[in-house]
Amino acid sequence: MMTESNQSATTARISTYMLTIVLIVLALSIVALLFAVNAFLVGNEVVAGYLLIIGFIAMGLSAWLLFQSRRRVTNLKIEAPKIMTTIECLKCGFKSVREFQRGDYVYKELDKCQKCDDKMVITAIYKEVKEKEKSYNV
């Protein structure tokens, strides 16, 4: 319960801060776009062009900030890796892999082998990691 309230507090804090900045930048971009329209109607096309660029850059920036805040919130997760257990018959070599179950440990004896009736043994418990590291070619 406590963790949930803390998490929501953290999320709210980040969102409020980001939201303020996003709103300010968004308001400025709208003002710039309105000025651009006004300048275009008056016939000052160069000024309208500048204001359009400024307006769109500001809008892009606010969208980027919003994306950043969303990413920060989704980062607040502890990922539980998938753990696999390898079960082996040491007599006939029959092997099977299943997901880890509580109580599993390496060299724990399990049920009889499907092929030779000898007891199966857990020979490995591991997680598989997909390497995200960059190759630096050095």
Partner: peptide
């Protein structure tokens, strides 16, 4: 500050 919030979350999760 952002890292500190993350640390706080991890710490609370650990406690839980």
């Amino acid at each position: 500050e952002a890292s500190l919030y993350k640390l706080k979350f991890i710490k609370e999760e650990g406690r839980k």
